[in-house]
Nucleic acid binder design. Sequence first.
DNA 1: TAGATTGTTAATCGATTAACAATC
DNA 2: TAGATTGTTAATCGATTAACAATC
Lengths: 209, 209
Amino acid sequence: MLGKEPKISNSVVRRLPVYLRLMQTLKNQNITTVSSQEMGLRLDMNPAQIRKDLAYFGEFGRKGVGYEVDYLERKLCQILNLDRHIGVALIGVGHLGIALSNYTRFQSEHIAIAGLFDMDPQKIGSQVGSLVVQDVRELAATVNDKNIQMGIIAVPAPAAQQVCDELIEAGVKIILNFAPVNLRVPKEVVLRNTDFTTELQSLAYFIAD
Amino acid sequence: MLGKEPKISNSVVRRLPVYLRLMQTLKNQNITTVSSQEMGLRLDMNPAQIRKDLAYFGEFGRKGVGYEVDYLERKLCQILNLDRHIGVALIGVGHLGIALSNYTRFQSEHIAIAGLFDMDPQKIGSQVGSLVVQDVRELAATVNDKNIQMGIIAVPAPAAQQVCDELIEAGVKIILNFAPVNLRVPKEVVLRNTDFTTELQSLAYFIAD
DNA sequence: TAGATTGTTAATCGATTAACAATC
DNA sequence: TAGATTGTTAATCGATTAACAATC
């Protein structure tokens, strides 16, 4: 940790939550210690890769023994900033938005949707889970009030860029986009895209002739 | 094309729908010809990569000119098998499932949800879009009847592996999974995972201290 | 001690980018 | 013809895997 200097690659970062989830699974099975080999077996991954990934952040294992599940879980949470509260704004309260707001509440107590936004007057004011849908015009104010650090864009494609701009304008630096568009963001903003259509279409490639 | 022998990498395949979408956008803007440089500019990609990706499948461009939008669109559709009808079974008609069934109907006329399944008696028989939700026990029969080639798993994590097994048992070889679990599949099955929780957690890594 | 497993370096593999001859 | 741009080879870059000394 102390100075994440060596510049961790995205591929590594994206595997960390997978390790974290495995630790939680193992804990539920009352397994207290695990080797990289066993992890590799369960995750269908190369053990060397797992060791290398973890070693970027510290020496978490014991030679001849393996990793202590509880300890590694805690460390992974620290690395992923999941040991503190993280506020998320979700814009677009359609079926996808609702699905996401259920989803997320689930896994990590620390990532929580702190604000739901839409532009449809029909939706504004309605209750979803424990939150009331707000007018998207209140986005900037709420981001500041509730110290929101991440944004999820779940609006239709044509509205996505504007919502994105508003998030950034409000100071949000991390954005997860579900709209099927190439958003333009300044380079200090971390943007990740999840596009079902693209995913499905690329899978169609594998249909046997 | 003729014998996709050179073994196209997954990274390449996943970029093809992006090119396809760009072609559709360009068509809407009445642009008939585009160079790899212009494509790179719009997609924020390296033009050499775009040319190389396309060249795996044939010589679609003209030197000194570029690519004909209409022609490249057609070619990309062919490569992705989007020039024929593709039936998809969607299991799990929660908010996510409904979102997905709306989504997909949208983009490509050729990929269509052909069956919706759930195990909740409350949902079975209800209408979603133009389809009636079926009992998941009818899955295998419907896959055969309607010649379904792809499956989307949108059920809660604990049910996912069983649904997956049933899809494979019914002959489905291509699966898109949204449940946050590591599914076990035989190696001839193409499995792609989309996991919001993992995505969100990995993004938390980038929160500034 | 003997066996196991880490952390890490070196080797391999694969994907991206640069460069350029061919040619429209 | 001159300028532009492809298709493709070679160079670079980065990520994965193998191997092994250190050590529990």
